[in-house]
Each structure stands twice: as structure tokens, then as C-alpha cells.
Design a binder for these strands. Sequence first.
DNA 1: ACACTAAACGGACTACGGTCCGGATGTTAT
DNA 2: ATAACATCCGGACCGTAGTCCGTTTAGTGT
Lengths: 212, 212
Amino acid sequence: MLFPGSRIWDVRFIPLEPGSLSGASPERRDAARNRERLLEAARRLIEECGAHALTMDRLAETAGVGKGTVFRRFGSRAGLMVALLSDAEADFQGRFMFGPPPLGPGAPGLDRLIAFGAQRIAFVLEYGDLARAAEASGPNRFEVPAVVLWHRHIEYLLREEGMDADPWLMATSLSAALDPERLLHAVRVHGVTPERLADSWRELVTRVVRGG
Amino acid sequence: MLFPGSRIWDVRFIPLEPGSLSGASPERRDAARNRERLLEAARRLIEECGAHALTMDRLAETAGVGKGTVFRRFGSRAGLMVALLSDAEADFQGRFMFGPPPLGPGAPGLDRLIAFGAQRIAFVLEYGDLARAAEASGPNRFEVPAVVLWHRHIEYLLREEGMDADPWLMATSLSAALDPERLLHAVRVHGVTPERLADSWRELVTRVVRGG
DNA sequence: ACACTAAACGGACTACGGTCCGGATGTTAT
DNA sequence: ATAACATCCGGACCGTAGTCCGTTTAGTGT
């Protein structure tokens, strides 16, 4: 992580881990031990069989804990995936919020937008199914803290570039273009290269920003 | 339907109904009867309890058929939803392929793009959860014939407007902005009005087309 | 009418995500 | 050490999508 402690808010959204932000009571020791066991087992399972083979039952069995414990820790399958990506996500957040330009502050908004998309595309392609599974299904797919942060960041950069036409919705549309499921589909099914994805994103945001 | 017989290809993708396009052997009579029973039962259940309450077990029970029959007919829950929207979808296809401008041919590409988005937004908001559930999950979410057709239509209009920068991927990004899940989320959670959605789409495609 | 075949039927079965709650365990105060 | 309490644990349980396969039935040829 570039900036230790720079994690804006815990990317884990359910349950909010006690003591991770506030100074409240820390995790009980057995709980901490089980969390480590679970994360380790999850990484091993994914490495060996792929993310699609990671079922909550199998994970519980592999880690040697009860199934209830898995859900107590991570809330849902998506929550587990988010936890597995937590470090990488925090690093990404640190870089686009506080890192060097053009991704971080100091560069023009458009350049930062282009860099943001390129980095997000690289992130999604690197983590593949993991990144896709981390996008929760269900009602609050778009309320995950990390997702909200990306959206606000795009909106902020659009405003900085003088976007006057509903920057919030425009950010929503641009966010949609970075949806992991679509990116991975383009790459895996249609053989689109990562460079093409990044180029297309650059064209898209450039036209959106300049087109006004 | 504006143009009888104008349904480009059957919006039902699994299983391909024998005899719907080619002149092959038609449906057996018991199969046809059960299909009608199922569609009627599904419409009634959705009307009474909402789409979220439509489970395949309950549908089978209500229609008085076995569960296997439901899946034999429609392949999946998403396939059932697609079948329920089949007429509306065919009508929509007929209008943007052959109907009067600006949605249909005869208007400039940009105007057709704007109209297409506006109509698609209206469609999604009208059918709500039904439209959302009709987007299959699983691997071939983007291979549903109707989805492919929308994408090709957008790509075609982009090319017509002289888009030179990877029209295929640009169409993918624009399609993403019309994703039912995102549209419904914006409306239901954030109180965005349909007019705002349509305006934002107009801004988006205008900038994308003119920004080159 | 009858036999034959391909298609359709139905419901038991599996896999999976997620919930629940009685019992076990760690922490803390005395 | 002990008691009291909050937290955690585990695995039985539930609802749902989707599968499987033995049985039934609608069409067809004779």
C-alpha cells in the first residue's frame, strides 16, 4: 500500500469490523484466528480451482470452521471477495486519491479520468473473476463503499472539467462502461485486448468532456 | 405489434421454439397448452405479488404442471421473463428497425440514437423488475439475441455518424449506460426522473458523436 | 384400431447462498 | 479463582434455480 492508513473507509461493508476505524473493542482472538484461516483457505481454493469453484460450504469445510462463521465474518459471498481484494483496492484508492499524477492530483481532470479508467481496467483484468464476484448482486450492488467512491471520483473530475450537464448521471454512465462483467466479457468472449479497452475509454471520456 | 412478422429473431433464446422460424414440426398440443398455462399463470402471479415473488416452483404449482416442464419451456428464469416481454420487445424492435423516424430509418443517426435511448429507458421503466430479471445472469448475459441486436443497432448508428474510433467498443459502453439494473437503481434509490435519464442519454450520445 | 417413436411430462434430487439459535468460548470485573 | 456477560461458533435448516430420468402421451405409419 502506497500510503499506510490511507484506506478511505473499510472496503468491507458487511459487517463493519469493530475496531477497524473507531477505537472500539478489537476482535476476539478466536474470531481473528478464524478470519485468517478463512482468507487463507479462500486464497488457496481460488488459486487451485478458480473463483467459480469457491463455494461457501467448501470454504467452511476447508478452513475447518462452521458455515455460520463464514457469513458472520464476511456477510455474503460478495463480501468475502471484497475482503480478498481489500488490500489491492485500498492501494488503488490511495493512488487515485493521493498518488502521483496523472492518476492522482496535480494533472488536468481529463488526464486523471483517462488514467483512472486505464488503471481500473488493469485492475479488473488482473483479478478477473474475483473482481466480478466482488460486485455484489442484490439490492445494494451500487452502494458498496468502493463503488460509491469511484462514482464520486468520476463525478468530481467531470465537474472539474466544467461538465455542466448532470455530472452525477454522466458519472453513472461512465461507471457503467467500467463494469467488470462487461470488460471481462469483451476480453474473454470477443478477444478484445486490454489496450483496446483503454483506448476506447480514452476516446469516450475525451469526447464526453470536450463535447460540451 | 406495428409490423406483423417483423420480429427479427425469436427473442426467446432457450430453447429455440421449433417451427417459429423454420417450417419444422410444430409444437405438440400438450406443450402448447402448457406454455399458455404457464404464461398466464406467470402474468397473474406477477400482477398479484410482483416479479420478485415469481419463483419457478410456485409458477409450476400455480399452472398445474411439473417443474421440469417450466424449465423445458423457458430454459431459465430469465428465459421466462424474456418470453413474457416477447411481444413488447418485438414491438420495440419493429419500431427502431422499420418504424417512423426519428426512431426508425429516415432521421440522422444521432437523432435515432437519442430516440433509441429514450425509448429503451421508457421500456425499462415501464416493465421494471420484469425487464431487469430478463437480463440473464450467467455466462451468456450479453449473448441474448435482443441484447446483441440493440448493440448492433447502436454500433450501426455510430458508424453512420462517422464514428471512427472502435465503434464496437463504443457501442458496448453506450449499451452499458442503458443497463436496466442501473436505470432502475437511479430512479428508485436516487429519485432520478425519467426525463433526467433521457436528457443525460442525449447529452452522452451527442458528445460522443460530435466530440470526434 | 394398433403399434411405434419421439417428444413432453413431473417431481424427486442436487447445489448453493443465506439464516437461525442453542451451546461453547473469550474477556472482564470482583 | 470465579462469576457474569458479550461475542462467537457450528451445523441443521430453508428457499430457490436448475438437473435427471423413469413414465406418459401425442402424433404417425400401417
